[in-house]
C-alpha cells in the first residue's frame, strides 16, 4: 500500500511552498500557465511534507490504487 500527494487544484494558489519542501526531485512541478502545481505520483514517496506546509490545505495524501496511471 503506497500513498502519494494529490493536489486539489481549486485550492492551489501556486505559492510553490510545497515545491520547496519536497525532499524528492522532480516530483512537484509548477504549471506556469495555470499558476498551479502538479504532483508526479510515481515519484512521490508520500512523506507528507508538502501537505504540512501548504497554507491553503490544497494537498493531501491519498492511497495509490492499482489503476493509478503508469509513469510516462
Amino acid at each position: 500500500m503506497y500513498a502519494a500527494a494529490k493536489v486539489e487544484l481549486s485550492r492551489c494558489t501556486g505559492c510553490k511552498l510545497c515545491i520547496l519542501a519536497c525532499p524528492d526531485p522532480n516530483v512537484i512541478c509548477f504549471l506556469a500557465d495555470d499558476k498551479k502545481v502538479k504532483v508526479d505520483v510515481t515519484r512521490c514517496k508520500g512523506c507528507g511534507l508538502c501537505v504540512a506546509v501548504c497554507p491553503k490545505a490544497a494537498l493531501a495524501l491519498e492511497a495509490l490504487t492499482e489503476s493509478e496511471p503508469a509513469r510516462t
Binding site: 526531485p25 522532480n26 502545481v37 512523506c47
Partner: peptide, 16 residues
Amino acid sequence: LGTFKELLEEHPLCAG
C-alpha cells in the same frame, strides 16, 4: 524549482 529539470534524479533516501 518546479520549472526546470533538477540535477538530482530519483534518490533512494527516506521519505521526509
